[in-house]
Simulated assay, not measured.
Amino acid sequence: MKAELRAWAKAVRKGLDLAGLSQRVASHLARLLEAEGARHVLLYHPLPHELDPRPLVDLYPVRYYLPKVAGEGLSVHPWEGPLAPGPFGLLEPTSPPVDPGVLDLVVVPGLAFDRTGRRLGHGKGYYDRFLKDLPPRVLTVGLVPRALVLEALPEDPWDVRVRCLVTEEGVWCT
């Protein structure tokens, strides 16, 4: 079921103006960060078919971090200095890792989300393993085009839901 949903989500994204949607999503995300008083924010470097959170950096100046694949999980690194190619074609930071406990908010990519914060990822489990160990005070936010917010997604026992979704239409939290 998840494999079919992944194929469907990728097909839908091909027809979307991701650059334009990313700008609109970033403006809503900036307002959420301001409302939450977030000062330490983990973003992600997007794959070509993902919404791009990087416009947020110019809209809301705080300390940003990027994840890096580390074994079977993710490590957190300040977004400073050069980026280098990592697994899966992602650009990753070369700065030393920091304790994820410094984070106030984590922006999570996904192929699709549902209204309760379930996420359809790429199936490798990196974000689920990372999110389950975050302190409860850290707000987790999924970025997703409205066209890819579904009523319900299948859920496995290891899946970790996000607490808020940001689309081009706005923010909603569960």
Rank of each mutant, 00 (worst) to 15 (best):
A70E: 11
H77E: 03
L103K: 00
L66D: 04
H77W: 02
A152Y: 01
L111E: 02
L66Y: 07
A11V: 08
P48E: 14
L111M: 08
G125I: 05
L43M: 11
G15I: 14
D52P: 03
T174M: 12
T167M: 10
A70P: 00
V138P: 04
E4W: 10
P87C: 12
C164L: 10
H40G: 06
L111H: 07
P157D: 12
E80K: 13
L51T: 03
L43D: 12
L29W: 01
L16E: 12
L148V: 01
P78A: 04
V98H: 05
L42G: 09
P46M: 14
E169Q: 03
L150W: 03
L74N: 04
F113E: 07
A152S: 09
G125K: 14
T94V: 13
K14E: 15
H40D: 10
Y65E: 06
L5Y: 03
G89K: 15
V107F: 09
L51N: 01
E151F: 00
Y127P: 03
Y60V: 00
L16I: 07
R6P: 01
L47Q: 05
L51K: 11
L59M: 04
V162R: 12
V12F: 10
E80A: 13
E80L: 08
S75C: 07
P96T: 00
C173F: 03
G123N: 15
Y60W: 02
F130I: 12
Q23P: 02
R163D: 14
M1W: 05
A30E: 05
G121P: 06
V162Y: 09
K68I: 00
W79I: 03
H49P: 05
D128P: 11
V108E: 12
V160Y: 15
V166S: 04
P136L: 08
H49K: 09
L90V: 08
Y126L: 04
W8V: 06
L111W: 07
P145T: 04
L21K: 02
P154H: 13
K10M: 15
D99F: 00
L148P: 02
L139F: 07
V12C: 03
S27Q: 15
L56Y: 01
V166L: 01
L103R: 01
V25A: 08
L165G: 07
G86S: 07
V166M: 08
G73N: 07
P93L: 11
R163V: 03
V12I: 14
E168W: 03
R118D: 15
